[in-house]
Amino acid sequence: MHQGCAAVLCVLAVLGLEVAALGECELARLLQDKLRYEMRLQYMKHNFPIDYTLRVQHEEVLRTANVTRLRDGKVSEASLRYLWFHACSQAVLHILEVLPEKHPSRGYTQELSQLLDALGVEYSGYRQSDVDAVVADLVKQLHSGDSRQKAVRPKALLDNCLKVLRMLFGAHCRWDSA
């Protein structure tokens, strides 16, 4: 029994290393696959009480309209992807915080968190000066916890993450956004 657990832990460790070694585009592709509609519906809607909402910061709800507005303000694509990463990471962490240890959505949410952590390694080299000022301010607000709160359904948070992911990474990574 213990040998079986050790083997599983070894496989998971190797897979974790493989995920960490992937590039930005491949990690974004894996996230897109993991955020398929059926999975979001199952894990973020059906496994939660009807009309369940989370209190999240206003900046964590990153929509395509927000990205378009920032693009029109001449914010770089790399900065927008950096902002998306922080907004989605915070959203997933908020979802994880409310899930009990044995909740059926916990494993799925942890997998999302691990993929985002691996993507965070890609962005760990960014310095404040590498990111547009408006994005740096938004990221600072995201992590400060001082902004106004709004109630959002867990599925809606992940819906926005996927839509913006496709918008920002589809052309950059040269994969179909469908």
Rank of each mutant, 00 (worst) to 15 (best):
V75A: 07
R63L: 09
K150C: 12
L138E: 04
N160I: 00
E122D: 06
L27I: 09
M39T: 12
L138F: 01
Y43F: 15
K45S: 13
D72P: 03
H2W: 10
R81V: 06
E24L: 13
P104R: 09
F169D: 01
M1C: 13
Q3Y: 10
F169N: 01
Q42N: 12
L22E: 12
L119G: 03
H94M: 08
H86Y: 01
K34W: 10
A87D: 00
D159Y: 04
A65L: 12
Q141D: 09
H143S: 07
P154D: 08
R166L: 13
E97A: 13
A91K: 03
R106E: 07
F85E: 13
L70I: 06
Q128F: 02
D176V: 04
A171R: 13
P100N: 06
Q3W: 11
I95W: 00
V121Q: 09
V56F: 13
T109V: 15
R174K: 15
Q32C: 02
S89M: 01
K102D: 15
A178V: 15
C88S: 11
G145E: 03
G16K: 05
A136I: 07
Q57A: 05
A91R: 05
A151G: 08
F169Y: 14
A156F: 05
D132K: 05
L93C: 07
G120C: 02
V131P: 00
F169E: 00
V67G: 06
Q141L: 12
L41N: 07
V56I: 05
H58L: 10
K45I: 03
Q110G: 05
R106G: 04
N160P: 02
M44Q: 13
A91E: 00
V134I: 13
L27M: 01
A156Q: 10
Y37G: 03
L15I: 09
A21K: 10
L12R: 13
A178I: 11
R71P: 03
H94I: 06
E38C: 08
L30V: 04
D117Y: 08
H86V: 00
V8Q: 11
R127G: 06
D33A: 13
